[in-house]
Design a binder for these strands. Structure first.
Length: 567
RNA sequence: UGGGGAGUCGACAAGUGGUAAGUCAGCGGUCUUUGGAACCGCCUAUCGGAGGUUCGAAUCCUCCCUCCCCAGCCA
């Protein structure tokens, strides 16, 4: 190796993992980086996995290396092909391409051979203790454990027993292959951990070919080595497994060992990222599936209307470090808004319709108004929207008694209809029996047509609308955070996280959208002016569109109003 | 009480001995046919605490405090 004579170039802002990778490349320790994303196919990927995916694939891409997708499928009891298919689709959707797609189960044969070698080297033994007995002899955090009575049985005997374990001669749980390390180690993971257990279960890929399955620590280290992984990135809870990871490779004298590096897993406010709990939400029917738009899963975020770009940007912004952190969900939402503001075509939709009749508009006539598709992007062009005598506006855009600073419609006041005319409220029609406002009668200013000379007038507010006769009924699903607490696990004594579920996380509106939105394809996204970003749900049908609110627009009026009420 | 980690603005997060970036949130304002977007300000962090080394420390040393992870034949 050459001596470095030039100082390392300054690379401020890089996270500690990229610094390590750069050092290794610079020093010649590695010619190229190889990483892997190793999900267990026992659930759907979520935003926390997205962080890891962006890291692993991102590092590989940035330094001209490779990243594999590897399914860590060593526990047939929990895993399923449904999950491998979903994971594959999610990684691809996020925008990453793997160098190779592998399964830990691809290596079962080699892993088995390595295990025999470990026995031959005196580094592993077959133990006849039951799980309970192992637990009883493991010791505690402060007391060392006791050696298994089988720890020193002859190599040949362990070898024979291990072969018979594989052959299916023994019952589940009756024996394990254990590493021979140190029952007195202060690191509990090193107290002769199990390497193989008997599980007479059908594996989703290998079927019934095996009845013994390797444990994570063993399988993971060797799978990494087999694939030539240089940097094995994982989360903090595996930090004290690293000595065992290294032990597996050293015990077999394997050269060019991969290096495990741990980083902090992602936590997001108002969000749960535990596979077990997410599974519980799904199986318990508390949400409508893994892809429920309220779920933090990649599938859920996708259906909600998140873009891969927004998620990748989020991953970039939260960074990578070792300290436990709780990221504000507002940052995720911000990333989506920023992306969609640039790219989403605008449209008008009314979610809580209130009828407006323009009394001086000639009955039976319509007008075609020109509307800009995206003020942020002139190339998006314009479209025509139909205007007529009867319109729907948002209930919230009219107040009989306007609060201070209210810029919208109220008796005697003017408001501009976006891309249309300026109107004045002349009369409020109520249902005589209920007192409910059923219709607003207004006059319009014919000279104020958008683009016309009378349109230059300053009017306090602009509101969106839809032509009653032309608008298309649409189902609009408004989502709110799934949990009412920043930390959903923070439950009072005797209760659990389920008590923090937000009962109002979904509100369905029967609204109207402008005709151009009628046949939008599932997945298409729009900004409904003044309301937020919406995407077309997979439940949508031509002429009967269904929209999901992906994220609302920032709403400074809501803040003013809230403040007014508070004062 | 064992071992492994971590503590920098409300939240993320740079900084690696030379005198505390940036982003989100929040606040105020400009502008505006989305109370959107954009733009401009503010957000006055002495860096968990106490000592010490040094001309000089968030960065080095010592002690202390707090938080997280580990006792699955789960990953």
């Amino acid at each position: 190796m050459e001596e470095k004579t030039t100082p390392a170039p300054e690379t401020p802002g890089k996270d500690f993992i990229r610094e390590i990778v750069e050092d290794d490349l610079r020093s010649g320790r590695h010619q190229a980086v190889a990483t892997r994303f190793p999900p267990e196919p026992n659930g759907y990927l979520h935003i926390g996995h997205a962080k890891s995916i962006c890291l692993n694939f991102g590092v590989a891409k940035e330094y001209g290396g490779t990243c594999n997708l590897r399914f860590d499928d060593t526990n047939p009891l929990k895993e399923d092909v449904e999950y491998v298919d979903a994971i594959e689709a999610d990684v691809r959707w996020l925008g990453f391409e793997w160098h190779g797609m592998y399964y830990a189960s691809d290596y079962f044969g080699r892993l088995y051979d390595f295990a025999e070698e470990l026995i031959r080297r005196g580094k592993a033994f077959v133990c006849d203790l039951t799980a309970d007995e192992v637990r009883a002899t493991r010791g505690t955090l402060t007391e060392s454990g006791r050696n298994s009575p089988y720890r020193d049985r002859p190599t040949e005997e362990s070898l024979d027993l291990f072969r018979r374990m594989r052959a299916g001669e023994f019952a589940d749980g009756s024996r394990t292959l254990r590493a021979r390390i140190d029952m007195a180690s202060p690191n509990i993971n090193l107290r002769d951990p199990a390497l193989y257990r008997i599980r007479k279960a059908t594996h989703h890929r290998t079927g019934d070919a095996w009845c013994i399955y390797p444990m994570y620590d063993y399988a993971h280290a060797l799978s990494d080595w087999i694939e030539g992984i240089t940097h094995s990135l994982c989360t903090l809870e595996f930090e004290d497994h690293r000595p065992l990871y290294d032990w597996c490779l050293i015990a077999l004298d394997l050269p060019n060992r991969p290096r495990q590096i741990e980083f902090a897993r992602l936590n997001v406010t108002y969000t749960l990222l535990s596979k077990r709990k997410l599974l519980q939400l799904v199986t318990g029917g508390l949400v409508k599936g893994w892809d429920d738009p309220r779920m933090p899963t990649i599938a859920g975020l996708r259906r909600r209307g998140f873009t891969p770009e927004a998620i990748r940007d989020f991953a970039d912004r939260i960074g990578v470090a070792k300290r436990d952190s709780l990221v504000d969900v507002a940052l995720l939402e911000h990333c989506l808004r920023e992306d969609l503001n640039r790219r989403a075509p605008r449209g008008m939709a009314v979610l809580d319709p209130l009828k407006v009749v323009l009394t001086n508009w000639p009955e039976g006539t319509v007008d075609e108004l020109e509307a800009v598709n995206n003020p942020e992007s002139p190339s998006a062009g314009t479209r025509r929207v139909t205007f007529s005598r009867e319109l729907y506006i948002e209930k919230d855009d009219f107040r009989e008694v306007p609060p201070p600073k209210y810029h919208r419609l109220s008796p005697g006041q003017e408001v501009r209809l976006r891309w249309g005319f300026i109107i004045r409220c002349e009369e409020v029609v109520k249902d005589p029996s209920t007192g409910e406002i059923v219709e607003i009668r207004c006059s319009y200013d014919p000279t104020s047509r958008s683009g016309g000379e009378g349109a230059a007038r300053k009017v306090k507010g602009t509101i969106h609308w839809v032509s009653a006769a032309h608008a298309v009924p649409a189902e609009v699903r408004l989502y709110d955070r799934l949990f009412t607490k920043e930390l959903p696990d923070d439950a009072p004594e005797g209760k659990d996280w389920l008590c923090n579920l937000n009962p109002d996380s979904l509100e369905v509106k029967a609204g109207f959208v402008e005709p151009t939105l009628s046949n939008a394809a599932a997945g298409a996204f729009f900004q409904f002016e003044r309301l937020g970003y919406f995407s077309v749900d997979t439940d949508s049908r031509p002429g009967r569109p269904v929209f999901n609110r992906s994220v609302g627009l920032r709403d400074s009026w809501a803040k003013i109003e809230k403040k007014g009420r508070g004062a």
